[in-house]
Structure formats: structure tokens, C-alpha cells
Amino acid sequence: MTVLPVNGGLVLAAGLFAIGLLGVLVRRNLLYTLMCVEIMMNAAGLAFVVAGAKWGQPDGQVFFIFILTVAAAEVAVGLALVNQIYRRFHTLDNDSTSSMRG
């Protein structure tokens, strides 16, 4: 077996996470927000798998499966919400759905 680039994998996860977060902060389209959340979750999963590989344990991969489950449920509910919002506000701009401001 070759030496696995474990630190590199964690750095990649951090990078993907930061980019995803950037997207959440910047993009106003709700679809993009959801996609960026997916990126962030994927990055978190990547970090788990890398960590699991680092310690030679299967737990990291098990947690990736859980994250996958959460992501699937999240996307299902999130997209249904996007659908409702578009029907009511006729826009996907998440700044315009700010009627709950204090």
C-alpha cells in the first residue's frame, strides 16, 4: 500500500466546506443555497471518511452513511419548501422572504 495523503484529504474537506459556506453566504437563489449546503455536508462527510482512514476504523464511513441519509432527507424537505416558497412569493430570492424580521 502507498502512503495515503491524510492531511491533504482534511485540507480538501476544509476547502470544500469554506467554498460551500461562501456560497451560502453569497448566493441569494434558494436553489443555490441548498446546493451549497449539500457541498458543505459532503465536505463534512469527506472529513469523516478521511479521519476514519487515518485511524483505520470503519466508523468514519459509517458516519458518512448517516450524513448521506441526513442529506437525502434535507434535500427532500428543502426542495419541497423551495417549491412552496416559489408558489407563494413567485421568486427564489431568499432576501425577499424576510417577513419575520424583528
Partner: peptide
């Protein structure tokens, strides 16, 4: 309450 803008991105 000024910080409660109702904008998701702001909270994030």
C-alpha cells in the same frame, strides 16, 4: 432586534 433581519444569509 435590528439583527433579526429575517434574512437567512445574514443569520448564516
Amino acid at each position: 432586534s435590528l439583527t433579526q433581519t429575517g434574512r437567512v444569509r445574514w443569520y448564516a
